[in-house]
């Protein structure tokens, strides 16, 4: 079941790379087996007060990166 994958716009690449440099600590790339930790500045919407990924421990977490466009 293959779905469409939206490519990043090439024109935005320099900005994205610049942004990535600025936010390295908050958006480090992942490896299987790596323990993830992150504290949100604002609790995720509809989370009723979840403040970090650690708060979600105890059950598996599906994190999906998506867009509103």
């Amino acid at each position: 079941m293959l779905g469409a994958v939206i490519p990043m716009k090439h024109t935005l690449l320099p900005l994205v790379l610049f942004g990535a440099l600025l936010t390295t600590s908050a958006s480090a790339q992942i490896e299987v087996g790596q323990e993830m930790s992150f504290t949100f500045q604002n609790s995720p919407v509809n989370s009723y007060g979840v403040q970090s990924l650690d708060d979600l421990r105890g059950r598996p977490v599906f994190v999906e990166f998506w867009g509103t466009r």
Binding site: I6, I30, Q34, M36, L53, R59, E64, G67
Partner: peptide
């Protein structure tokens, strides 16, 4: 996108 990561109950990828 959309892309994803699954974390286990200990927060590991």
């Amino acid at each position: 996108i959309p892309n994803f990561a699954l974390l286990d109950a200990q927060g590991k990828v």
